[in-house]
Simulated assay, not measured.
Amino acid sequence: MSIRHSLLALLQDRPRYGYQLRIEFEDRTGASWPLNIGQVYTTLDRLERDGLVRNEGADGEGHVIYNITPDGLAEVRGWFTAPVSRASPPRNELAIKLALGLTLTGVDVGAIIQAQRGVSIRALQDYTKARRDTVAQHRPADTARLLVLDSLIFQTEAEVRWLDLCEARLMQLANPPR
């Protein structure tokens, strides 16, 4: 996830300080990916260094306000128009854990699969409930939250299906055909 581009996108609306950016990001994404406030300010410092935002000074309450620059606007527009690259997919900790577990002695990969399936099914239930609750509120502004929840639901469903496949492959290893 690009925190850099997300903060630039939020600054298109109006200048903000770090905590406002954090709250806006979490509100607009349904709090699915909480941001550490330190990460927000570190990213803002880098954006300022790179000439994509400028520090407008402090407001009356001591908050440092950041504004997007023309270069920052060009950067975020480019981000929105470019597809997300699939060339270098993010690391999947679960896939790495299972791959390594299969190659090491003393690792119960079946137990890893079962434990993960339980966690994934609970998460799927939570996402589905959150989606149902959001739909019940009938607010147009919730469309962004619904998109994020749908993405999480689909990803989690795919993970559960993949875990089923992993378990089937383990059974094939344990019972090779004659």
Rank of each mutant, 00 (worst) to 15 (best):
66 Y>W: 14
131 R>F: 07
121 I>Y: 09
59 D>I: 04
98 L>E: 09
26 E>K: 04
35 L>Q: 08
54 R>A: 07
14 R>W: 05
121 I>K: 02
42 T>M: 10
173 L>H: 07
168 A>D: 14
40 V>Y: 02
30 G>T: 03
178 R>S: 10
66 Y>D: 12
48 E>K: 12
122 R>K: 08
165 L>H: 01
23 I>S: 08
178 R>G: 06
126 D>F: 06
58 A>P: 11
59 D>Y: 02
59 D>S: 05
164 D>H: 05
131 R>P: 00
12 Q>A: 13
92 N>G: 08
128 T>D: 04
151 S>D: 08
98 L>H: 04
96 I>Y: 02
5 H>N: 14
110 G>H: 13
126 D>L: 13
80 F>M: 13
81 T>L: 06
16 R>M: 11
52 L>D: 08
138 H>E: 09
114 Q>G: 11
23 I>W: 11
166 C>T: 00
42 T>K: 10
86 R>C: 01
64 V>P: 05
19 Y>V: 01
136 A>E: 07
147 L>C: 09
16 R>C: 04
137 Q>F: 03
129 K>Q: 15
66 Y>C: 07
176 P>C: 01
97 K>L: 15
170 L>D: 06
19 Y>Q: 05
86 R>Q: 10
121 I>C: 09
157 E>W: 01
136 A>H: 01
157 E>V: 05
169 R>I: 09
104 L>Y: 15
14 R>T: 10
22 R>Q: 13
165 L>D: 00
79 W>Q: 08
66 Y>Q: 06
46 R>N: 14
3 I>S: 02
111 A>L: 14
102 L>I: 03
175 N>E: 14
20 Q>C: 02
44 L>T: 04
26 E>I: 06
36 N>T: 09
111 A>H: 15
127 Y>L: 03
23 I>R: 10
167 E>I: 04
80 F>C: 10
128 T>K: 04
115 A>D: 14
132 R>V: 00
9 A>T: 03
176 P>Y: 02
15 P>R: 03
89 P>E: 09
171 M>S: 15
26 E>Q: 14
16 R>Q: 07
162 W>M: 07
116 Q>T: 13
47 L>N: 12
75 E>W: 05
178 R>F: 07
14 R>S: 11
106 G>V: 05
97 K>N: 10
167 E>N: 05
15 P>W: 07
175 N>Q: 09
70 P>M: 09
173 L>S: 07
84 V>P: 05
139 R>V: 02
119 V>D: 15
88 S>E: 15
143 T>E: 04
78 G>Y: 08
59 D>N: 12
12 Q>E: 15
107 V>C: 13
170 L>P: 02
61 E>T: 04
53 V>N: 01
38 G>H: 11
109 V>R: 02
72 G>N: 10
91 R>F: 15
145 R>L: 10
101 G>N: 06
53 V>H: 02
34 P>G: 08
123 A>K: 13
23 I>H: 07
112 I>W: 11
165 L>A: 14
105 T>V: 12
172 Q>V: 15
57 G>V: 14
105 T>L: 15
147 L>Y: 13
141 A>P: 00
134 T>E: 12
164 D>T: 09
79 W>F: 15
152 L>V: 00
135 V>P: 05
140 P>S: 06
68 I>G: 03
109 V>C: 07
39 Q>I: 13
103 T>R: 15
122 R>W: 12
3 I>F: 03
49 R>V: 12
50 D>W: 08
15 P>A: 07
132 R>W: 01
120 S>F: 06
97 K>Y: 11
96 I>T: 13
150 D>F: 06
